[in-house]
Design a protein around this nucleic acid. Structure first.
Length: 862
DNA sequence: TAGCGGAGCGCG
DNA sequence: AAAGCGCGCTCCGCTA
């Protein structure tokens, strides 16, 4: 090997504490020729003599002459044994990495694992970015897993080999190789059109290009300028080539008709031509051709929604490559370009934003479009093969993911209805609160009260209040629990101001520009992402329906249009039920079978442990049983039996105790430690408890539910050995970090995820299964599903069908038929509850039925 | 002037 | 050796 590089001044580097452990007393730099085209960046010298290095060199030597390579490390000093360098250490040391790059001047750099990736890009995420080359300052980088990751996960070997192959290809080619197997046609004439129709056989990819993301857009949300949503290209990818149809002919016309329209009026489109035919006729011809095709899309919810909104066509996709990839690797990114690069070594065909909006030539946009079509189609085969390798995962894809994907499109189409009267009232109210709070605060100083930084400075420096709490980063905290712990008259107004300002900017100012008026009714169209989380839960944005406060002032803004009734059905305590099922926990299962509220059970048992609240316990039980005396022990059992509702009626103080038990249940269930419980009790309830008390509470929890520890152990062990866990449906949650098996924070976090994921995942899947069944039995003419919220289904039901639909959905939710199809048998009963009426203010189904019977019959005659 | 991370907070 | 999980949105204040 060649000599080590000599850098001046390096002996002085004491930027981080790693220099203390540096074996030779100073940082160690890389090995290799002073100038090299190819550089390999490893983690640290700690691994130099290790097995990983031998594997690394063996693999690299298949592609390169090792003597030609320069080997550097993300950190120049060795971290302690078994430890990875920290974020801060990597950042500090990145100057030395840069320095080595400047000296060696490589053209191509291979990054082995998270550490060098973080060093170069400043951000971690090797699972997301591996296999995808990127260019920076004329240097091409390719991240891949660290060779040591193969010790625990055999699959990684093949992945690294493939990435090395890609890397070698890049070096050989002198850049990222372009793959030109496109056969791109621009379809303009009738002849072109018929050629395309003939080519549409078998597997056909479908994709559209548009001027914006929101199909209902009329004005640009940023500038407010008139900028209506327009389709610029329609296209189909076939075995014989990619066909792109520019829709530019109708663009100017659409601009003229858009101001008046709210939703596209089909009649207006008939004036527009596509390839010499009226556009709707052309689209019907395409529809006929598609009848016998297998339609493939990438994120097809988007394209199909546009087709529906703009042309009234309810098309659907047979296979979505984004969904397929999500179910195959929830940790990675699912963009088409990233997948194409990873799977097919595709060139980067991206064009800038403005060009995508149509500000470019038809040829350039068509070529871009063709790439989308080409790789979407090819991905279908690659991903289809990968799906077949795991039958359970494949079944989740076909039975749950694809059907729910379709329901999500409908949810977006139908949107949610906003009560504009209440919207105005809420705004007035909130503005008043803000004005009053600001006025009250002005006497304490003239600062921006909503700025955490200014507030902290003002409170803890100017006013010299002792800071009770610090943030994770170590800064003085001004969050709600910190404020509650300081004694100053401004606290109340401060919290009022914060709350009102937040609601105002989230739900009034945030929603207003997104409101879409149609026939005098205001709609929001939140975007639901089925691939939004790693656990299988969905996510929601623009706006996020999942974070609407329970405060009725805001929540009741969500309602239904005339003739329809808003309903919410939720799965009661579903996560705890599933945890009980998975852990086979007899105390919990027994409680659920008897209909005992588990938060209540935890609360009562905790009170029993402390032998506290004697008066309250005895009084409540005596009132309930109508007896003069009762023992403390019996009284507690009576309390259990009566449940929280009855107890609250006798003495409202009970409400607090159930409320307190809830986070404890979830916390301990998912691996919370007593220390956190201690701070939790202090911050949220102002109760100072000792370490011993906190420890005892945790111990007691696992004694009460004594089968939980074994379940935790099972999950952790499985994840450590296999690198993944499954939910009851068979869905996989991949946890490569669990395989590190080294007590690192990452490994421990992965172990906790191994416990949490299958619960969260399956709870949501149950909800999905119910939604699928509901849609199967009732069409959009009767039921409009407007959201699935983890454990609940929100819908609007045509007035005449409310009783029938709600009754049926309650039954479905307590046992979705798909459970049988999946062969899932549950010991724990599942229970659903219904609320009828505007969100957050609905009445229980029973009360609603009662009321309806009382109502005069005339009401129902229309 | 745009992008980004931290803090804080809403939901389950 | 370190200990609930999963999201999105808005604000501020800093950096490119």
């Amino acid at each position: 090997m060649s000599q080590q590089l000599d850098f001046e001044g390096i002996a002085a580097c004491t930027a981080c504490r790693l220099h203390k452990t540096a074996e030779c007393g100073r940082p160690v730099f890389g090995d290799g020729p002073k100038r090299s085209e190819v550089m390999v960046i490893d983690e640290s010298t700690r691994l130099y003599e290790s097995r990983a290095t031998k594997i690394r060199d063996a693999w690299l030597s298949e592609f390169f002459d090792l003597e030609d390579l320069f080997f550097a490390n993300a950190v120049a000093c060795s971290p302690p044994k078994g430890k990875s360098p920290t974020k801060g250490e990597l950042k500090k040391c990145s100057v030395w990495v840069r320095h080595q790059i400047d000296v060696v001047k490589p053209k191509y750099v291979l990054l082995l694992g998270n550490a060098p990736l973080q060093s170069i890009t400043g951000a971690a995420g090797i699972t997301k970015r591996r296999g995808i080359p990127f260019e920076e300052n004329g240097i091409i980088y390719l991240p891949t897993f660290h060779p040591s990751s193969t010790f625990h996960d055999d699959d990684n070997e093949a992945i690294i080999q493939r990435d090395l192959d890609v890397f070698a290809g890049i070096v050989e080619h002198g850049g990222i190789p372009r793959e030109e197997s496109l056969n791109n046609f621009i379809v303009r004439s009738r002849d072109d059109f018929h050629t395309m129709l003939k080519a549409m056989k078998g597997t056909v990819s479908f994709d559209i290009e548009t001027t914006c993301l929101n199909p209902w857009q009329i004005n640009d949300p940023k500038t407010g300028e008139f900028d209506p949503a327009r389709v610029t290209f329609l296209g189909f990818g076939t075995a014989s080539g990619e066909y792109s149809i520019p829709v530019d002919d109708y663009l100017p016309r659409l601009s003229r008709i858009a101001p008046a329209r709210r939703l596209p009026v089909l009649g207006e489109w008939s004036k527009v031509e596509l390839c010499g035919y009226p556009i709707l006729r052309a689209l019907r011809m395409i529809e006929d051709a598609l009848e016998d095709c297998f339609i493939v899309t990438h994120s097809g919810k988007f394209d199909m929604l546009w087709m529906w909104v703009h042309f009234g066509l309810e098309w659907w996709t047979d296979f979505d490559t984004m969904m397929a990839h999500y179910i195959l690797d929830e940790n990675a990114r699912h963009g088409l370009k990233e997948l194409a690069t990873r799977y097919f070594n595709a060139p980067n065909w991206d064009i800038d934003k403005d060009a995508k909006k149509g500000n470019t030539t038809v040829e350039k946009l068509a070529l871009y479009h063709a790439h989308d079509l080409h790789y979407t189609r090819r991905l279908r085969f690659a991903l289809g093969r990968q799906l077949k390798k795991d039958k359970q995962v494949e079944r989740v894809f076909w039975k749950i993911i694809m059907p729910v994907f379709r329901i999500f499109m409908e949810m977006q189409y139908d949107g949610i209805v906003v009560d504009t009267t209440k919207f105005g009232e809420a705004e007035t109210f909130l503005r008043n609160v803000v004005a009053e709070a600001e006025k009250a605060l002005s006497k304490w100083g003239n600062i921006e009260w909503t700025s955490p930084k200014q507030l902290a400075k003002h409170l803890y420096e100017t006013l010299k209040i002792k800071c009770p709490l610090f943030t994770d980063k170590g800064n003085p905290s001004v969050n709600e629990s910190a404020l509650n712990q300081i004694d100053h008259p401004c606290v109340g107004d401060l919290l009022k101001l914060r709350g009102a300002k937040q609601q105002l900017s989230f739900f009034i100012e945030g929603w207003r520009p997104k409101l879409h008026l149609m026939n005098g009714i205001a709609y929001l169209h939140p975007s639901f992402k089925l691939h939004g989380t790693v656990t299988g839960r969905p996510s929601c944005e623009d706006p996020n329906l999942y974070q609407v406060p329970r405060d009725p002032r805001i929540r009741t803004l969500v309602t239904s249009e005339p003739g329809w009734t808003f309903c919410e059905l939720d799965l009661s305590q579903i996560e705890l039920r599933i945890a009980a099922e998975l852990a086979n926990e007899p105390t919990m299962i027994d409680a659920f079978r008897k209909g005992i509220d588990i938060h209540w059970l935890t609360a009562i048992r905790e009170i029993e442990r402390g032998q506290g609240l004697r008066d309250l316990v005895l009084d409540t039980a005596r009132t309930w049983k109508q007896v003069k005396s009762i023992s403390y022990g019996d009284a507690l059992e009576e309390l259990l039996e009566m449940g929280p509702d009855e107890a609250c009626e006798i003495n409202p103080a009970w409400k607090e105790y159930r409320k307190k038990a809830k986070p404890v249940n979830f916390g301990y269930l998912y691996g919370m430690w007593w220390k956190k419980f201690k701070t939790y009790a202090r911050d949220n309830y102002g109760v100072e408890i000792s370490d011993e008390q906190a420890e005892a509470s945790r111990t007691f929890y696992f004694e009460t539910y004594n089968k939980l520890p074994a379940w935790h152990k099972r999950q952790k062990r499985f994840a450590r050995e296999e690198g993944y866990v499954r939910s009851l449906s068979g869905r996989k949650r991949r946890l490569p970090d669990a395989m590190r098996n080294d007590n690192s924070p990452e490994a421990k976090a992965a172990e906790r995820q191994a416990i949490n994921s299958p619960v969260q995942s399956f709870a949501n899947e149950l909800n999905f299964m119910s939604a699928i069944q509901l849609r199967k039995e009732y069409g959009r003419d009767k039921v409009r599903i407007c959201g699935t919220v983890y454990d609940a289904i929100l819908m609007r039901v045509k007035d005449e069908y409310v009783e029938e639909v709600v009754e049926r959905l309650l039954t479905i939710m307590s046992h979705p038929p798909m459970l049988d199809e999946f062969g899932i048998k549950l010991k724990v009963p599942i229970l659903a509850e219904a609320k009828i009426g505007p969100w957050g203010a609905g009445i229980s189904f029973d009360k609603w039925k009662e009321k309806r019977r009382e109502a005069p019959k005339v009401r129902r005659i229309r």
